[in-house]
């Protein structure tokens, strides 16, 4: 494992910890899209079916279990916790996420490494992860004001994707057998979706001002 991949995993972990901290400390999930969180839970559940079939390392197994457990915990809190669920911006979280599910599934049926149950679901999880942030970005844009922890959450999530691209560039030169086109192309699309957010994030950081997205 190279440094970019490791830092990518760590920023991913940090983003989830920030989200858990926000929900735990403020008992609020305002600004957070339940649709995006549900899509992420589904991404992890479909991708990590290999927990039952392949053992890669203790690190790998532990991280997979952490991602599954934390995503399910977040969804549970947003749906069921008596205080947290009241702060959910349901009227702003209106992205038609079923289209993302359908499109990802159809694409996975067409484009996969092998036509097998686990492989098609793996491709599905990759495609779905690439677009799962869209309901979240739309919610932020609609609410305009982004609270500090929510802004940091999305920033670290974007940083994780950017670091994975550096990881692939590194692997491409070091390990010529590494050719995961589905993951790499989807990863590029996914990272591009953050470009607009990053732009406004850095402007607010430079001006030392609160993060605001244009309507």
């Amino acid at each position: 494992m190279n440094i970019f991949r490791f830092l990518g995993d760590m920023t991913h972990l940090i983003s989830i910890l920030i989200l858990l901290l926000k929900i735990y400390a403020t008992k609020s999930c305002s600004g957070i899209s339940l649709k995006t969180q549900e899509l992420y839970a589904l991404v992890f559940l479909t991708r990590y079916l290999d927990l039952f079939t392949d053992f890669i390392s203790v690190y790998n197994t532990v991280m997979k279990l952490v991602f599954i457990a934390s995503s399910l915990a977040i969804v549970w809190c947003m749906r069921n916790h008596p205080l947290v669920r009241r702060s959910y911006d349901k009227q702003l979280d209106t992205f038609r996420h079923y289209f993302l599910l359908l499109a990802s599934f159809l694409l996975a049926l067409l484009l996969h490494e092998k036509f097998a149950f686990q492989e098609v679901l793996w491709a599905f999880s990759i495609y779905l992860e690439a677009v799962a942030i869209l309901p979240q970005l739309v919610l932020l844009q609609r609410s305009g004001n982004v609270d500090n922890l929510t802004g940091q959450y999305v920033f670290f999530l974007g940083a994780y994707r950017a670091l994975y691209i550096f990881n692939w560039i590194y692997r491409y030169f070091i390990d010529p057998h590494f050719t995961r086109w589905i993951a790499c192309v989807s990863g590029l699309v996914q990272t591009a979706l953050y470009a607009d957010f990053f732009y406004y994030y850095f402007i607010s950081w430079k001006n030392n001002a609160k993060l605001q997205l244009p309507a």
Binding site: R5, D9, N60, E113, E119, H177, T179, R180, A183
Partner: peptide, 10 residues
């Protein structure tokens, strides 16, 4: 075959 390499990324 390359597709049999386990998927080591998260």
């Amino acid at each position: 075959a390359k597709e049999d390499v386990p998927k080591d990324e998260l």
